[in-house]
Simulated assay, not measured.
Amino acid sequence: MISFARLIGRIMTFISICLMVLLCLPIAYEAIMRSFNAPTIWVFETTLYAFIFLGFLGNALAVKSGAHFRVTLLMEVFPQWTRLFNRISEFSTLLLALLIISSGIYFVNNMVQMEIVSATLLEVPLWIPALAIPIGGFGLFLQTLVQMITDETIIDSHMVGD
């Protein structure tokens, strides 16, 4: 199960990195077209949806690399309880991930049933970009679970004080 969860995390990380690289193309195209006074109607909307997926799929990488948001004040004051504080943090993250997954599924289902589309010429069904919410929550859940089971608490170097 751990290898499966890690694989899912690697796939989400790969997709996030690919989206980040690929986003350069339509944005550059839009900048060039605007300089010729011929802006596009699709670049802003599609890149916005790609950024949404990029952000939510990046959850797994953020947890794995220790770059997820953390408050470390209590760990600095009571270093002997760091393991307990990490467990509380991980359990809280699991609960948050379950909330994100369940509310994301509700959100997507509502959009599908109501046939909600974007108010643009593209009329993109909005359940498509909304899928990023439960998928990203799933990645957050799996990576946190792996971290708990393997006891691989990673501390980002940006958190370490001088």
Rank of each mutant, 00 (worst) to 15 (best):
N109K: 09
I11S: 07
E76V: 01
M148N: 06
N37S: 14
S102D: 08
Y106T: 06
S102W: 06
P79D: 00
L131M: 14
L122S: 13
L54Y: 11
P134D: 02
L131Y: 08
P129I: 08
S65V: 03
I2K: 07
G104A: 08
T153R: 12
L99V: 09
T150E: 14
Y29E: 14
S35I: 12
N59V: 00
C18M: 15
L145D: 00
I133A: 09
R10G: 02
L94N: 07
L74S: 06
I128Q: 04
G55M: 02
R87I: 14
V112I: 15
S89C: 14
L84Q: 07
Y29D: 07
V43I: 12
T13S: 04
I8D: 00
I154Q: 15
T13V: 06
T153L: 02
G137A: 07
A62K: 08
I149L: 12
T153Q: 12
F69W: 09
E90I: 02
W42S: 05
M159G: 01
L54V: 01
I88L: 14
S35A: 11
G9F: 01
T120G: 10
I149M: 11
G104S: 10
N110I: 06
I27V: 14
T40A: 10
M111I: 04
N109D: 13
R34V: 10
I88W: 04
E76L: 01
E152F: 01
G137Y: 03
I88K: 03
F51G: 06
G104M: 04
Q147N: 12
V146Q: 03
R83N: 12
S65E: 15
S103T: 13
N110H: 14
W81H: 13
W127V: 08
S102H: 09
I128F: 09
Q113E: 13
T150M: 11
S103A: 09
L25I: 15
K64D: 08
R83G: 08
I52Q: 07
I15W: 04
T150N: 06
I154E: 15
S157Y: 09
P125R: 09
R83L: 11
D156T: 08
W81R: 12
E76S: 11
V117F: 13
F78P: 00
L131A: 05
I41F: 13
T153P: 03
S157G: 09
W127H: 08
T120N: 09
E45S: 05
Q80V: 11
G161A: 12
I105H: 00
I154N: 14
F4C: 05
E45A: 10
F36E: 08
S16F: 00
W127M: 03
I15P: 03
A31L: 13
L121C: 02
T144G: 03
A28C: 13
L54I: 01
G9E: 02
F69D: 03
G104F: 03
F4Q: 06
G58M: 01
I105N: 05
P129H: 10
L84E: 11
G136N: 02
A28R: 01
Q143V: 07
V112Q: 10
I32V: 15
L73S: 13
M114I: 04
I116F: 05
G104L: 02
I17G: 11
A119E: 14
G9N: 07
